[in-house]
Design a protein around this nucleic acid. Structure first.
Lengths: 245, 245
DNA sequence: AAGTGGTCTAGACCACTGC
DNA sequence: CAGTGGTCTAGACCACTTC
């Protein structure tokens, strides 16, 4: 682990532990550099990490201040339902309800960088949290990864982890669109809610380290089961609002 | 503007313009340093900015690749409905439907770092996009900013901008919780939808540069009117999923 | 083996905050 | 005016990718 990650981890622990209250000042960069016997640049890398996590804020000329004390989770936990659930202490399960190959639609071709009509694998999965159905996933996998997906256990807990272990696939980048929709009849039946009731929808496209698209998905959460959380600042602006459809 | 921001802007323009296709490689740091007559560190700051925007990705040992070509928007545009709408070419309007002072609730006291029972200002606003009602805002302002808020025009287009111009208030940090809820009877009447229909809810707390909480709000968007978008990677993880309520 | 990004150092100057 | 964070430079070594 890099020196700056160690320093960031040390400071993060102190913040989470409450050594620095919310609103309190962090030591100056000079003092931290002295304390950790590191160059100022290294200390700056460390605090930049904490700033990106939304834990601390900064202004030129003034000491850094603590903004929050909750640990944010990793990309993997955003991407993988199972990994997120496990980190939160829930027991996740899931079932593949259908899985079949078909030619891709024009919009899927664009999102997955495929040739029009190239074969894709469509999978419908129901996910449960502590036994309760909370999520319907409609995922479309690019043809080149389809065989590995079809080999998975239909009750497989973490698709992300299994694909890593079986073929070394790593999800590295994701784009996510979040909005609210009314439950369709299939959604309603699977999630055990009334038709037309509110669902939180997350549409995403995920790519490998090389920038090659792997899958796109339409995930629908039962209202009240999951909340997305984000911290931002004038310096960091990860979330964006979009109009209409 | 800083040198690294100029370089980032130059590269961003080239990407948005299509000079580098999605999936294509960026020039190496050494080449960029030469081209811009800057130190390698400065070039790294520039590409780090683009990486945070989700435009490019990187892996040790390999050239950086282009992941997307859409410009992401600023913190102000996430925080301020009016500023976002303007940047997207929409005409935003709004009306204050009610505004009154009252003692804060226990949960508001925690979120706004107030003493229990301290006075706050509750405001109900309806926001329109091109004349269509799309958003109900229920905002609670801390007592110290209440007078400035009460002096605003009830039809004021951008609260954020007006508060900056009138009292120099700058919103610097925000925490946002996003989920889906069913429209209550008041929501339904104001947004002209049926009771129980899906709404996208954004709850937020905003603070000043000094870390002082200014307001917390419960904003509800009519389904289909707005989508939140986020790009992330194994390196950057701004968005977080949370369970239940 | 050459090229590339990731990490780290040491020092410099500037703009801004806070007293 | 002293302290602090923001920017920039110049150089070094390492881990990894690519060929």
């Amino acid at each position: 682990m890099a020196r700056y990650e160690q320093i960031a981890g040390d400071l993060r622990d102190a913040i989470v532990r409450g050594d620095y209250a919310i609103g309190a000042q962090l030591p100056s960069e000079a003092e931290l550099a002295l304390r950790y016997s590191a160059a100022r640049g290294t200390v700056r890398q460390a605090v930049a990490l904490l700033a990106a996590e939304g834990l601390v804020g900064s202004r030129q000329g003034a000491r850094r201040i603590v903004l929050g004390s909750e640990r944010s989770q990793s990309f993997a936990e955003l991407h993988s339902f199972a990994q997120w659930a496990r980190s939160m202490g829930y027991r996740a399960s899931g079932t593949v309800l259908s899985s079949r190959r078909r030619p891709c639609s024009p919009s899927e071709a664009v999102r997955l960088s495929l040739e029009p009509g190239e074969e894709v694998l469509g999978v419908l999965r129901l996910r449960r949290l502590d036994g309760e159905p909370v999520l319907v996933e409609r995922t479309v996998y690019a043809g080149w990864i389809a065989p590995a997906v079809e080999r998975l256990d239909p009750e497989c807990e973490s698709v992300t982890q299994e694909l890593y272990e079986s073929v070394g696939l790593v999800f590295a980048y994701g784009e996510h669109l979040i909005d609210a929709v009314a439950a369709g009849s299939e959604d309603a039946r699977l999630l055990e809610v009334r038709r037309g009731s509110p669902l939180l929808r997350q549409r995403r496209v995920t790519t490998t380290q090389e920038g090659r698209p792997v899958e796109c998905s339409d995930d629908r959460y039962r209202a009240g089961s999951v909340t997305f959380s984000i911290r931002n600042s004038t310096a960091a602006n990860p979330l964006v609002r979009r109009a209409g459809e």
